[in-house]
Design a protein around this nucleic acid. Sequence first.
DNA 1: GTGGTCTAGACCACC
DNA 2: GTGGTCTAGACCACA
Lengths: 124, 124, 124, 124
Amino acid sequence: MQWDLNSERPVYIQLIEQIQSRIITGFYLPGDKLPSVRDLAAEAGVNPNTMQKALTELERMELVYTNRTSGRYITLDQGLIKQLKKQSAKQQIQDFLEKMKYLGYEIEEIISLITDIASEMKKN
Amino acid sequence: MQWDLNSERPVYIQLIEQIQSRIITGFYLPGDKLPSVRDLAAEAGVNPNTMQKALTELERMELVYTNRTSGRYITLDQGLIKQLKKQSAKQQIQDFLEKMKYLGYEIEEIISLITDIASEMKKN
Amino acid sequence: MQWDLNSERPVYIQLIEQIQSRIITGFYLPGDKLPSVRDLAAEAGVNPNTMQKALTELERMELVYTNRTSGRYITLDQGLIKQLKKQSAKQQIQDFLEKMKYLGYEIEEIISLITDIASEMKKN
Amino acid sequence: MQWDLNSERPVYIQLIEQIQSRIITGFYLPGDKLPSVRDLAAEAGVNPNTMQKALTELERMELVYTNRTSGRYITLDQGLIKQLKKQSAKQQIQDFLEKMKYLGYEIEEIISLITDIASEMKKN
DNA sequence: GTGGTCTAGACCACC
DNA sequence: GTGGTCTAGACCACA
């Protein structure tokens, strides 16, 4: 598992997304202990403060919780994780459809284009 | 037709997108004369400098051209417009599929979700 | 108006509280423009990052809003401010009564003690 | 009687407060023998080191004393206990009034609010 | 000039 | 060793 950062968007936002992705896809399981802030930061190649900022936000979302002296853990609330997955997907789709409508596409066209491009992407 | 701006993303980027959308969807037709920078800025409620920046960028993309004495016009190159439409759509779709894959969804699931949400959005 | 910080609790928390207090008591009025992060930080004698952290949190609470390039402003939602005031007071009182109960006091005793101490504090 | 700990504040501080509360309210009487550190720690579900730290602090305040061979006992000095109770209460009240003043409340309002909230809390 | 982000490096309380 | 806080100083995009 690797960290994939670009400089177009704030690094801490990308860190949040990637950790969310790890939780959603089950790479991190409920109750798992996360590596320490310092280790995560070193692994991702960012400053510990930046990683801290990302983790604080995840904590605010209740996706992780902190035991101040022993470390950080993934939430035990599996429902929350499922909800996050569903809700993220719905948001992505709505935004996407909005933009496509904005470009003048109808739903049938969109689906046909998606299947085309998806098969094209699979080849690579 | 109205301008729909929020302050989360750079205003000039949003202006570019909205003018592009107007060109792609045919609200502005090839050869049409654009309102003056001042009028456009007033209409959109932004600083003329910001609108200017957006138009300069659109000119760089050759979607509009300037006739020094008489004003700005939409490009006559219909191929360019079509290409923009296709290319924008492809980019949107690729980004979207990337993100959904990231959330752990397969192509079949995605299409099924899209049809669901699209019909749900239609109701509103 | 001055900043009153001690080192017992995190500085950024105290900054949040003091700005909240200024909003609640009407020192800052709805729609007022706040000084820039740098100015506020200089005024309070803290690092701009620390002030930034406090302001970000106030923004999350929707007590202030940001216009990225022109500055920060106090929310126009007066209801929110009133609600904050009431809710803060209620919280303070509940916590207080809880602690006093914990020390073995009944409500009548508490009120009598308060009036005594309040008059004593007034003298100073 | 149970231990009620959260992880927001230092555990050893919360232990001190709860033992003080037991002394003030007469749950532990002057001269009572305290359970062993290990038993107390087990009962509270904390590390023995942490409980030890709390007890050491209580000893420093002379609320408990140690008989090297037979264990720890509650102080026989009833005056000290009364004084602790009064002084704690006074401190609580002063802090509380300070905060309420900070929120823009006058003493009369405070008392009226307290009686309201107290009756509301009694119902639950 | 405005807010926002990031790094580097330090110190702290707690367990 | 853990998370949390803070400073100092820098750079960026935007208007």
